[in-house]
Simulated assay, not measured.
Amino acid sequence: MDRLRLTGYAVAQLILAVVLIALAALWVVGGALIVVWVGLGILAGVVPATRWVANVHRAMAASTLGQPVPVPYLPVPRDRGFFARVRVVAADPMTWRDLAWVFIAPLVGLVVSIVLLVLLVGVVTTPIWWFVTPPLMTARAYFDRFFLAYSRTEKLEQRVQTLAASRADLVDHSAAELRRLERDLHDGAQARLVALSMTLGMAEAAFDDDPARARQLVSDARETTAAAIGDLRSVVRGIHPPVLADRGLTGAVQAMALDMAVPVRVEAHLDGRPPAPVESAVYFGVAECLANIGKHSGADHAWITLSHEGAGPEDGVLRAVVGDDGRGGADPAAGTGMLGVMRRLAAFDGTMSVSSPAGGPTLVTVEVPCTLDSGSSSPRTTPSSGPA
């Protein structure tokens, strides 16, 4: 039965070889006419058609090899203009690997498929077909994977480039955060402490001659002290919120949800706590999403789902999904908040994706690969809402 399945793949590849020949011709025509813009329209149709055929071959190669052959294309932004999408496609190395494959694969497909079909229909050659089919189709699958998927070395090179870029972003973000903290301390707590020192000095000078004024100055100093403490607490919360350290990610997100004017439901499915830096990054990502919901969405309800997916606490992905039923149309590139969250997540190999069609709903998904400390678990399901 397995050989019949592989032979079916050979028949499909024989048909697709004809399609690839037509696509190769269109690639040539589109490339030749691109100087008069007509070619750009041709290529706009050829590229997705090529990717569709390549994805079919990836699926057959994965089935043949028993190993995944992932689709490695860079995401094309649907909300950007035509030329912006063209630049993304043209900058994708896999586009050019597909192009090379288009010109070579038809010959390989025709030869392999015709050989197998001729061996199958011949009475004398059927035993040969029986023994030749698995290795021949396996070789064809390796050929497709060579062109249509990145090798381990290429993946490592891309990983190094990604880490270098994320490290540079994180350094810039950290420098900006340090400047923000310095500014907050200088304009907030430091200014109040200077005022406090001056007030106490005036109170000390007034003790003998004007006790009533001295008492008033001491009272003012007490208020200034309380305000300075509040400023310091605000700065500390911006670094690492105490509620996050005390109650973990689930409890901290619950606390944020309770402070929202929009009713928010929180569901957590965590069997432990992630590492503190990852926990902090996800917390601030959720906080930014909730802030945007409160300021821009016009939503009546919102929801947050926290989960860890994988074989167990020791591996997998921490996922936070924040959604609302507001007006939609959110653009993560429109402000600095989301971009800052993305930079923070990139340091941990994390990602943030946004789905926000006009009219809603808006869904923001944060994913960070990490392990969980099962010694400190969180409630599996916790509903939380603000005022109705």
Results as ranks from 00 to 15, higher is better:
V19E: 07
R3L: 00
Q254R: 07
D169Y: 05
A12C: 07
L107G: 11
E204W: 04
G248R: 08
P106E: 05
V218P: 09
Q67F: 08
V364D: 06
L258N: 08
A358C: 07
R87N: 09
R273L: 14
T305V: 14
A302L: 01
S174Y: 00
P332I: 03
S174N: 07
L16T: 15
A10R: 02
N292L: 02
D92F: 11
V171Q: 00
A105L: 08
L119Q: 10
F103E: 01
V121W: 07
F143I: 07
V253C: 08
D187Q: 15
M137A: 06
V366G: 14
H186D: 15
L249T: 12
R159I: 04
R380P: 08
L200Y: 01
A346Q: 06
V19N: 06
P70Y: 04
T362Q: 02
S234Q: 14
R273F: 10
K155S: 11
P332N: 09
D209C: 02
W52Y: 07
P68Q: 12
D315T: 13
P77M: 01
Y283E: 13
V38K: 05
S376M: 10
Q254N: 04
W303D: 14
D187G: 09
S151G: 12
V11C: 05
D246C: 03
V317T: 14
D324W: 02
G109W: 08
A165M: 13
G310C: 07
V364C: 10
D349I: 06
S378V: 09
A214M: 09
D315F: 07
V218R: 08
A221Q: 06
S355V: 10
R179E: 14
G45E: 06
E279I: 05
V112E: 08
G188D: 08
